[in-house]
């Protein structure tokens, strides 16, 4: 439970962090809240030569309304999301989802950017941001680029982020205080989701449904969404939730069980969000 020796640097500014990453990108790893990174380092499943700590960069801890969107700095903690009055009014799905992550210790440390960059298929935030049609803002030596979260994940724990890029911001539309739901299915109160379903009603009126742990990446219930758009009932639409999914098998459930859960949870989430 002791990591392999590594160097540690804590840049004082975002530019410094980006510059450091540009020179050491291949053998460096970014540290934000550390709640995914440190366990794997302690288990020696990761052994970076250099750890670049961005967790305390004030430039990455903003949370503000910008036009039709809300901009959230990557180093914003779960706890900040849970207690944000801006989010309570402008995008109430996010604090609700953040409140289900781990336990209070995890929520005081873990960051939104870390969760998005890490891309655990059982993670809560990636699916929530996907349900919101959010955008991931990356910054590298060549400046910034925005990637819709729907295009961000390429597979299990893998994203389009280049090794010399940082996740600096997550942007979501202002979806308001209502019209959302999050159904997270766990064995214990502070467990990772066996399956979870996030529902968000978009400013356009469209109802988005995203699922946790139903594939190697967060995934939208496209058949359900289409059925809803066609005016089908919640029950009928929810019955289609598992279409096109590829859920994992583990001690918590078979793929068949997860497909079943996806349908039940989607129905419940839709009933809460829009019925």
């Amino acid at each position: 439970m002791i990591p392999v020796a590594f160097d540690y640097q804590r840049p004082q500014t975002l530019d410094e962090a980006v510059a450091l990453l540009a020179t050491r990108g291949e053998d460096a790893t970014v540290l934000a809240g550390g709640h995914s990174l440190l366990p794997v380092m302690k288990l020696r499943m990761a052994a970076p030569e250099l750890v670049i700590d961005i967790g305390r960069l004030a430039e990455l801890r903003h949370l503000r309304v910008e036009g039709d969107e809300i901009a959230i700095g990557a180093a914003t903690r779960y706890r900040d999301l849970v207690t944000s009055t801006v989010l309570a009014a402008e995008c109430a799905l996010l604090p609700a989802v953040a409140a289900t992550v781990g336990d209070p210790q995890v929520r005081h440390r873990g960051t939104l950017g870390g969760a998005i960059a890490h891309g655990d298929p059982a993670g809560d935030m990636p699916a929530a941001i996907l349900a919101l049609d959010g955008t991931v803002v990356l910054q590298g030596p060549n400046g910034r680029r925005s990637v819709p979260v729907a295009e961000f994940y390429t597979g299990l724990f893998s994203t389009v982020r280049e090794p010399d890029e940082l996740v600096v911001e997550i942007r979501v539309p202002r979806t308001g205080a209502t019209g959302w739901a999050y159904e997270k299915f766990t064995r214990r109160s502070n467990d990772w989701a066996i399956v979870a379903v996030a529902v968000a009603t978009m400013p356009s009126g469209a109802v988005n449904v995203a699922m946790v742990n139903m594939a190697g990446t967060p995934i939208r219930a496209t058949a359900t969404e289409a059925a809803l758009a066609e005016g089908k009932s919640i029950v009928d639409a929810a019955a289609l939730a598992a279409e096109g999914t590829n859920p994992p098998a583990d001690t918590h459930g078979t793929p068949e069980y997860r497909r079943h859960l996806a349908q039940v949870l989607t129905r419940r989430a839709l009933q809460t969000a829009i019925a």
Partner: peptide, 8 residues
């Protein structure tokens, strides 16, 4: 008595 066992 996990959920998956009871459901199965």
């Amino acid at each position: 008595l996990t959920p998956v066992r009871v459901w199965t």
